[in-house]
């Protein structure tokens, strides 16, 4: 029971990293500058590496003989557990930066807390990821500053990106009843204080950026039930094409 819950949680974390990494890789060859192209690909690569660790660990704990590739390439949309925020289209560069900044702050809280996990492999994964996330956050924060405090057009586009994405942030620290048992054992942290810390940080920063939260509020969720927006199917169609067409092919 506990093993299944922990495996599902790691899939939630790893799938989010994998899908966000895929979205960032879509910028390759299209970013506004060569340096940004390289930066987005580099962040995507870090996230892909973290996803590999999370999925491998999920597979081991689950104990059904599924490795990282089996999990990434042979699960359907309904079996994916990633946050809806990660699968949202890139939009313009400002929208991509808003998504990245929200996710970086989320990862910062999540991995800081998971670093204390009583499960040694989970803690090691968190410590490793945290180092990389701090660097990503430095990048996304700088760009949030430049865009929101720059020209009127850049500011407007950043605000639009936030308006577009905010509704998907409701589920960032959702914790289900099964996971509560792992909280009691010190394997997972209690997410409520993490969410409060994240929200406070976002509020303070948005004030500094002169950006405001949209009236619609945050309300969409579905990650942990595998209920996705229309976009995930298209991502998986591309991501899984080779393995679906030629199962178990290798380079």
């Amino acid at each position: 029971m506990n093993q299944t819950v922990l495996a599902q949680f790691l899939l939630h974390v790893g799938d989010s990293q994998l899908i966000l990494s895929h979205r960032l890789a879509e910028w390759c060859g299209h970013a506004p500058e060569l340096e940004l192209d390289i930066a987005l690909a580099n962040i995507g690569l870090d996230l892909l590496g973290q996803a590999r660790t999370a999925l491998s660990l999920a597979g081991e704990i689950e104990g059904l003989g599924r490795d990282e590739d089996k999990l990434a390439y042979f699960r359907t949309e309904r079996e994916y557990r990633n946050l809806l925020l990660c699968e949202q289209p890139n939009g313009d560069f400002a929208q991509t930066m808003v998504r990245q900044w929200l996710m970086d702050l989320y990862h910062l809280e999540l991995f800081t807390a998971l670093s204390q996990s009583q499960q040694a492999d989970v803690a090691a994964f968190a410590v490793k990821s945290l180092k990389e996330v701090k660097y990503h956050l430095r990048f996304s924060t700088t760009w949030m500053e430049r865009l929101s405090l720059g020209t009127a057009e850049a500011h407007e586009k950043t605000q639009q990106g936030l308006n577009q994405l905010w509704r998907f942030t409701a589920e960032l620290f959702e914790q289900n009843a099964d996971e509560q048992q792992l909280v009691a054992q010190g394997i997972l942290p209690d997410f409520a204080p993490l969410k409060a810390a994240w929200a406070a940080q976002v509020q303070t920063e948005l004030q500094r950026f002169g950006l405001s939260l949209p009236d619609t509020g945050a309300y969409r969720s579905g990650a942990k039930q595998g209920l996705h927006t229309e976009y995930l199917g298209f991502i998986l169609a591309e991501l899984q094409y080779m393995q679906r067409s030629y199962p178990n092919m290798a380079w």
Binding site: E35, I38, A39, N42, I43, L45, D46, Y135, R138, F139
Partner: peptide
Amino acid sequence: LLSEFSSTACKAL
């Protein structure tokens, strides 16, 4: 500093 990210993950430009 030109860019926080460079030719490989471990370097800045």
